[in-house]
């Protein structure tokens, strides 16, 4: 990728330097954000800041970049490690149009897309509630709901690529052909050596992706198998304790309450409690979900919680006891 050392062309930057510049920029962006926040606080009050945190971040990013990259100047991070933008070939500085495109796609576009996606989703959800038929729109929603997953994968691959080759840190830079070059002459062989340690990171990301996709494939396969099982033996219930998917987890959590009620009218429950202290002093019935106050007096959970919310003390001995001090017995 780099040409021979004798040429007058500036050498392309390596991954490590670009990452360093990016970190520095992120730091300055966050400072920008704080200043903007202060500004809006004076202008519109704290409430405005709390309701539009995302917008302020985007604005800070866009402002920072348009004050530096758009004007043709370097960002503080780029200055820090002495990087300049060049175009794909590395022979000339990037034109204004790609720079504008980069800033828009880098700072503003993700926000706009997510906003559109959100409104699209909410409006279509309402519609799908009205009529249960599967329409093209619903198919679109499905596609969109996978949008983030797909984007995530693409970005990961891109980062891995960056770690391997050290070309473009973000996708929008690749699209608009903005590459970094060192502002000073550097021995390209040294550069090559230094970027070597980053390929390990790229390797890890690729490995992670590989494992993830394997797992996704497996769960997909399990689902298919399950579907087949269901059609074959519809009546047979899956009694396995392993949690296969979200659905079983959900049913488990729904059944959780009824499964774990401890009713002391059943003598096998908590046998260490003697017979004459198995009744709750408040409802005078055998305790359900016995819970101890700080002092050690035991009541039904429901009974004692109702009381302690109004009077934070034990009904029997009046020792101070807050709701969070109650200890359910198991």
């Amino acid at each position: 990728m780099s040409s021979n050392p004798n040429s007058r062309q500036l050498p392309f930057a390596d991954a490590a330097t670009i990452v360093r510049a990016h970190q520095k920029d992120a730091y300055f962006e966050s400072i920008y954000r704080t200043y903007l926040q202060d500004f809006f606080q004076i202008l519109h009050g704290q409430r405005f800041i709390n309701s539009y945190p995302q917008e302020i971040t985007v604005l800070a990013k866009a402002l920072y970049l348009s004050l530096t990259t758009l004007l043709g100047a370097r960002t503080l991070g780029e200055e820090y490690v002495d990087l300049i933008y060049v175009n794909k070939t590395g022979k000339r500085l990037p034109r204004l149009l790609p720079r504008i495109g980069f800033i828009l796609s880098y700072a503003v576009l993700p926000y706009i897309v997510s906003k559109i996606f959100k409104s699209f989703k909410s409006s279509s959800e309402e519609e799908s509630k009205k009529d249960g038929s599967i329409s093209i729109k619903q198919w679109l929603i499905r596609m969109f709901s996978n949008y983030y997953k797909v984007l995530d994968v693409i970005l990961n691959v891109h980062i891995a690529l960056f770690y391997f080759k050290g070309e473009f840190y973000s996708l929008s830079k690749r699209i608009f052909g903005l590459r970094y070059a060192f502002g000073h002459n550097k021995d390209p062989q040294k550069v090559q050596q230094q970027s070597g340690n980053y390929s390990l990171l790229g390797g890890i990301i690729i490995l992670q992706l590989f494992v993830k996709s394997l797992m996704a494939l497996k769960s997909y396969n399990d689902e298919l198998v399950k579907k087949g099982e269901k059609t074959n033996t519809a009546t047979q219930r899956d009694n396995g304790t392993r949690i296969h998917d979200i659905n079983t987890l959900q049913t488990l959590s729904e059944n959780f309450e009824t499964d774990h009620i401890i009713d002391l009218s059943d003598e096998s429950q908590l046998p260490y409690l003697p017979e004459n202290s198995r009744n709750c002093m408040l409802c005078l019935s055998p305790m359900v979900n016995p819970s101890a106050a700080i002092c050690g007096h035991i009541f039904c959970w429901d009974c004692i919680v109702d009381w302690i919310r109004e009077h934070p003390e034990c009904p029997l001995c009046r020792q101070q006891c807050a709701e969070q001090n109650l200890l359910p017995l198991r």
Binding site: L282, C283, L284, S285, D302, C303, D306
Partner: peptide, 9 residues
């Protein structure tokens, strides 16, 4: 709760 307790009493 009140009813149950009163009947118990």
């Amino acid at each position: 709760m009140a009813e149950r307790r009163l009947f118990q009493e």
